[in-house]
Design a binder for these strands. Structure first.
Lengths: 205, 205, 205, 205
DNA sequence: CATGAATGAGACTTCATTCAT
DNA sequence: TATGAATGAAGTCTCATTCAT
């Protein structure tokens, strides 16, 4: 049950090579921006000529599509598991945040691309699934926050929509500085982040 | 005492027209991304032909340059005033956050552009001042947080560098959804944000 | 009795200003080439804005036209006087060469422009007079050389057409390095040049 | 021992195609002037689209660069052989002139371009080698003439610098009218030219 | 599978020219 | 007479894409 759709890949064979090339492309997209990335840069990074990429992919856009949809598919697999677990609001938030940092760990480039490009991409029919995902996203997070306020575990004096935006953005922007294999594991980052957001940085509280 | 540099504007006079055009350009850059914005789109939005822009500006890049440097100049004017005021760490953070949201209110487009483009721009000699600003930024925020930890007003158990990143990102990423003249004033947003970051969203603390 | 035609000048008055501007334009054309010279460069050199030149002239091309035709008019005045004087072949050559260097002295820029641009200009109807001039030129020089060979004052063993080309080029190409007011007067240069061409540079002869 | 430098060609292989295209470009540059030549005209002459040229070359300027530097490299190969041969002044001049007309025969277009464009090109760092070549040129010719005067084989009453200019220019301007495969071989033209310059066109001497 | 060469659309930019003031 | 601002055509160059080999 995919969150997105089937890809019409230019050719079938050797799915590992395909994945390798997509990883390469994702790194370049993330580093330079989608528009500023030329097909030739991707090909250079992959050790081939620009034209050769078209044996594997229909277009530059379809590479981006596959990168983003693969990431979102995996993300929703994780999110759906959390949401189906019947946890309380605070525990749900904790699980979603942790899951998010794990995704950043696994798909850093894709997340960075998503952050930077999703806004203008949603206009294209091919990328409508980004808006769908955005909607489900808001449902999950906002719903959990509201449930927490109703249950008395989250403060009632904060604008819940504003809080949602803060939390959502801060989690994902981390992709812009996170380096897999760095000092902090995703779980450690999640713990620190949650501690800040849930209890504040001030002493005394 | 400018944070950046003097612009060599193609032509001196009529600074209001110049500012009008820059505002228009900034909106388009923010909405579509710098690379995806064609000079023609800016000209359309300004009600003129693409070539006509070059009477006012040397290049598309110099428009971006002027937008960003103007914004940073004003930002640092505000920041420097705060930093020179001799406030305690908590009050400094509060003042910086409030000042930041005010800048977002005044320069929404510029902030959004800065967020999206500054990373690849820093490579260009012309935009070295972005890196300089980044450095002073880190000094101001990280320094204040460290002082707060030393003074015992901020928690000592959080990774201060990680906290700095979260705080910094959360503030600026607001530019991506903030709409001047919307439901919340910059001061109101700052208050909510500070309350969340300082005291946490959980009840009890 | 003009060699060319009337100019339709954009406006009548102040012929000295007109000449000043044309001199300025000629210098820039000579220094940078006609195509590479922008109207703005001419205006800069004249201390005005590009658009202002159009009060004085119809177009950039008409400036070039007026520069070249004025020069050719004066040149042919001198040449016609020489040719009408009924001199012998050697004396005619001497007089033409001397007259030529005097023209270079007076119209250095125009001569340099003529050298560089006349070839592609002859295609334009407006500049047909350049081809006419070229023809009369060949008549005058080649005819004199042939007369000299027939009279036995010039060597019969040289290809007269080839000789004509060498002589012609050598004279005019001097415009590319000649600086009015330099070490050598036009007459001195003419004398040296004639001595070389008529008697050779080798000792003994 | 190259007179100029290595080219960073956009792509390495198929050097014959590259040379074909450069020859085409050189013809158009020579016929119309570098500035007046549009990339589209070159492409038309080569039977391709304008953009396609950029697969082979970095820019229009780099085509010009390669045309000129290739020509100068070959020219200096010939000149250096002459200068290393230890000939007397008169024989050196004869050999240099003959070599020059041979180069015009082989590189007519390049020579014509060099004549017309080198002056404003020398300002560009990329074309500094033109000035270097110019300097070595003057050394070779002027030095030989001076040696000839000292040895008593050339006349002492002529301004040697003026003579140098006349000789230099006249040789090279020939590229503007010379047509390879025409009535005269390069050697025949050289002989006629040398006869004129060395012994003069006047009978008796 | 990959290369080499080309296409064609469209980008940024330049510039002669116009015109109201 | 000159300015300031704009026009519009054209120029150089980039780049995603195609395709024969």
């Amino acid at each position: 049950m995919s969150a997105t759709k089937k890809k019409n890949q230019a050719n079938a064979p050797a799915p590992e090579r395909r994945r390798e090339l997509l990883d390469t492309a994702a790194e370049v997209f993330a580093a330079q921006g989608y528009n500023a990335t030329t097909v030739r840069k991707i090909a250079d990074a992959a050790g081939m000529l620009a034209g050769s990429l078209y044996y594997h992919f229909d277009s530059k856009e379809s590479m981006l599509d596959e990168i983003l949809s693969t990431f979102l598919d995996e993300l929703w697999e994780g999110y759906d598991a959390v949401l189906a677990a019947g946890l309380g609001p605070r525990e749900t938030i904790e699980a979603l945040v942790t899951e998010s940092f794990r995704e950043i760990d696994r798909h850093r480039a894709a997340v960075a691309i998503y952050q930077k490009e999703s806004r203008h991409l949603t206009d294209l029919p091919r990328f409508h699934y980004l808006a769908d995902s955005q909607r489900r996203f808001e449902e999950a997070w906002l719903g959990t926050l509201e449930r927490g306020v109703a249950d008395g575990v989250f403060r009632a004096d904060l604008d819940v929509r504003l809080t949602y935006r803060f939390v959502r953005d801060t989690v994902w922007v981390a992709a812009s500085w996170y380096r897999p294999g760095g000092r902090h594991s995703p779980e450690e980052i999640a713990r620190q982040y949650l501690s800040m957001v849930l209890d504040g940085i001030a002493v005394g509280g």
